[in-house]
Amino acid sequence: MTPLTFTLRNEPEERLDLSGLTPDRLAGMTPAEIAKLRVGTSRRPVAAGDIFKITGTDASNIVFSGGSGRFDRVGTEMTAGRIRVAGDVGARAGRRMAGGLLKIEGKAGVQAGSSMKNGRIEIDGDAGEGVGGPMAGEIHGMSGGLVIVRGKAGDRAGERMRRGIIALLKGCGDHAGLGMIAGTIVATGRVGRYPGHLMKRGSLLFDLKPAELSPTFVDCGRVEIAFPALFDRYLMEEGILDRPLLGPRPFRFGGDNAVLGKGEIMFARG
């Protein structure tokens, strides 16, 4: 079977809510039925058929041929299957995702992987602020799964995350791991102001010492524990990094002591 392919006809005039175009929701539907699904968000919303040329039959393998910064909520609540976007996406890609693979070959907007529970998101370009974070009014952010951003991420990556792994391969903005409850954030490159602000538990793993570390983190010196080697091996086996991040004796800071103080920031070089 050929992948179910949505080929973008023109840049949309309005933001599109693509949460309905996931493997779970499209299973068993014909292209004609899919074309009638409402995806627009304005007063006169467009249907999927107005925006995309729809071909293919395999709903478990969806391809968006051509992307746009107005593609919101791609892969929302998907539980299985695969979505590939050949281009950019807008806000909240992979929102509350519970399984499967979401591959974005361009940039992602704000809150990619917002409150995701499981599965894997790969973003080849930059990502906006709030990767894995909660939406307004929600208590917790990401609670499982893996997000890989191969470009730079914005502020507040991993806000209030409880579990899972976020890898940011060209650095990130301010307050990475803000209010983090548990989980792991990996970042290589420049990290913004006060990573781990208000974090209770969890691990922030960097290649370099952050330029601005909150004074409520305390220096624990260099540590010789098994975790860095294990995690380095995991990162390489998953294809996230091609060389060790932390090495055998990383530097460790404990905090945030303003809250519980059971989190850690580790980095290879001071």
């Binding site: 004074p215 409520t216 305390v218 945030d256 002591n257 303003a258 809250v259």
Partner: peptide, 12 residues
């Protein structure tokens, strides 16, 4: 943050 840590008798 420092005041909050101090109130809880944690180090800064």
């Amino acid at each position: 943050g420092i005041l909050r840590a101090s109130l809880a008798a944690r180090k800064a």
